[in-house]
Design a protein around this nucleic acid. Sequence first.
DNA 1: TCTAAATATGTACTAAGTACATATTAGGAT
DNA 2: ATCCTAATATGTACTTAGTACATATTTAGA
Lengths: 212, 212
Amino acid sequence: MSIPSDRRSRKRLATRQGISDAATQLFMERGFDRVTVDEIAEAADVGRMTVFNHFPRKEDMFFDRDEEGREILREALRKRDLRFPPTEAYRLLAHRLIAERSPLFSFNPQGQGFIETIEASETLKARARAIRDELAEVVAVALSECVGRDPTDPDAHLAAGLLLAIWTVAFLQAHRIFRQTKDAEQAKTAFLATVDKGTIGLKATMAGTPYA
Amino acid sequence: MSIPSDRRSRKRLATRQGISDAATQLFMERGFDRVTVDEIAEAADVGRMTVFNHFPRKEDMFFDRDEEGREILREALRKRDLRFPPTEAYRLLAHRLIAERSPLFSFNPQGQGFIETIEASETLKARARAIRDELAEVVAVALSECVGRDPTDPDAHLAAGLLLAIWTVAFLQAHRIFRQTKDAEQAKTAFLATVDKGTIGLKATMAGTPYA
DNA sequence: TCTAAATATGTACTAAGTACATATTAGGAT
DNA sequence: ATCCTAATATGTACTTAGTACATATTTAGA
């Protein structure tokens, strides 16, 4: 999390950030598909190979903070209130992220631009879907671990699949509402309403398992 | 569905099928990423541009029957027994597809090879995810239409997202079991058990709406 | 100051996909 | 049959992401 003290790591980080910043700005301005890696290298003032050294694929420059999401989902179970079951822990997480104005769920013009940039590009949409599946896997593993079951436990995978489906639909719906109304409060309310509604079913499906 | 009578269309179809067949065989033999479009054109005895004429992207040669899936999901609601709600119609569809040995859910060595070819390729997995999202959209539209609501109805999208999540998890789980046990009956049973379990939650979430 | 490892960069290549031009073929009219 | 037109197949040239591998540069530490 904190910045490393040695110069080598700091410089590497700075180079990486410079590339990411240049890329993100260009992507937002002109759309992901209308920016070439050569242009990014030029804008960041580094060699083309340096770009690929830090970001194996072009999409990685856009989604350069996906590890955060994974960590949040793992932590939600590690640090949960043990009076509640895991499904409830995730419902509470959604409420907490909204209450704390997490940048992951920022309903404002900037977040809107982010979403629109994704939706305008098949490549970015594909990467977003892949991340969603990765998050589902993280949740499945975290769930099974937290109740002492095998990581391949079918119930854990079903719960994880349902959970990510709920959050995804809730997220898209909230952004759709924000796009139409420009009202962040309404978007947040819609997000939480959908999560809550979905959680009812998630708990019903998981009834009789340690997950609910 | 039926083969067109005029020679032009027949020839076009034959060319298309020839490319698809050559491609599928090569993909299964060597893996999607180790086959080039040039090789496919060579094997199908057509020009490289002809390949792209019929299949805009390389993946389309592998997933060349995705429209069937869409149609099945639409038909399930159009021809449903009106005594049951839409969610039940989809549960019954799953049972019917399994009972009728639909090739879409064939737990046999060939279907296994198909799945393994997909799982070995990031490109194919990405396309599979995209198709899943497209199917969710189809279901959302079909659901809202069948109860006379707007195609953007949040409940319909939540139901569709949950449904596809359930089927996806069920499908992957069944294939996992088949891979381990080589027992098609066990795989089918697991598939339906997961669908049924997920449907409980789907109905709980949709309680109070016309979908459940 | 020297050395080894990490980092940045250069060169050359592969392969998908696109734009646009051209050739070939089928179907219908005279 | 012959000619015309539209659909279909194909060729050429290009762009761009991504990879393999070599080389240069910089930094940490002896």
